[in-house]
């Protein structure tokens, strides 16, 4: 990973902080803000909201944005199945090649994009990501999505909304609103990817 992705004050890496992996950062103040049980409750609530809003699971497609958005999308699908007994297709949508900051960023690996068999035409697509920050990832996701078809509607579900939007984008379903300073980073750990327990924490920033 590049220095730019590690630098919390870099304006070029607005969406990156939550994706920074363990073991690479200098010792900094880490403050856990969401415990495993809270994350589970937030996801259950989002699942209910999605169903309520859509009046059932009909025509829903969940698309996770790599890496942790995909894990969250699968968890959401499991909850939708538990609540409504409906099978909601899950896919992944890689947005790397649609980003507007590629020129400033060091090399980013490209993840696979896999759409469910039914495609997205006339479906209600719920984009799922871990942290909503500048909104640039979501803009890229909307562009990427338009290459695959024309969904009837696109909604956005995020685990954490940390503010500091740079584009007119908002989430339909938010696990938790976390007011943060731009100097801080929000770190999301999910057991499937990172091992250990689920946790959302705030790293760095001004320490008193």
């Amino acid at each position: 990973m590049s220095p730019a992705r590690e630098d919390p004050s870099s304006p070029n890496a607005p969406e990156d902080p939550p994706r920074v992996t363990a073991g690479e950062e200098p010792p900094q103040a880490v403050r856990a803000v969401l415990e495993p049980a809270e994350i589970a409750r937030a996801l259950s609530r989002i699942a209910h909201e999605v169903l309520e809003h859509n009046k059932g699971a009909e025509n829903l497609v969940l698309l996770g944005i790599p890496t942790r958005g995909v894990t969250l999308a699968h968890r959401l699908a499991a909850r939708l199945a538990a609540i409504e007994g409906a099978h909601v297709p899950v896919g992944t949508l890689d947005v790397t090649m649609h980003r507007d900051d590629l020129r400033r960023q060091a090399f980013r690996t490209i993840a696979a994009t896999e759409l469910p068999d039914g495609g997205v035409d006339d479906k209600v697509v719920v984009l799922v990501d871990d942290v909503l920050y500048s909104g640039r990832t979501i803009r890229a996701a909307l562009d990427a999505l338009s290459e695959f078809g024309r969904p009837r509607a696109v909604r956005l579900a995020v685990l954490v909304d940390r503010g500091h939007r740079e584009l007119p984008i908002r989430a339909d379903h938010v696990g938790k609103n976390l007011p943060t300073s731009a100097r801080e980073r929000v770190r999301v750990r999910l057991s499937e990817i990172d091992g250990g327990e689920d946790v959302v924490s705030i790293v760095g920033g001004v320490t008193k």
Binding site: M97, T113, F148
Partner: peptide, 24 residues
Amino acid sequence: ISILDVAGQMAATQRREIKKLPTL
């Protein structure tokens, strides 16, 4: 290997209906 991996993803985009990407 990272070039070959990226090439694999690029090849996947070339099987889509819209082949053009805004990347560069």
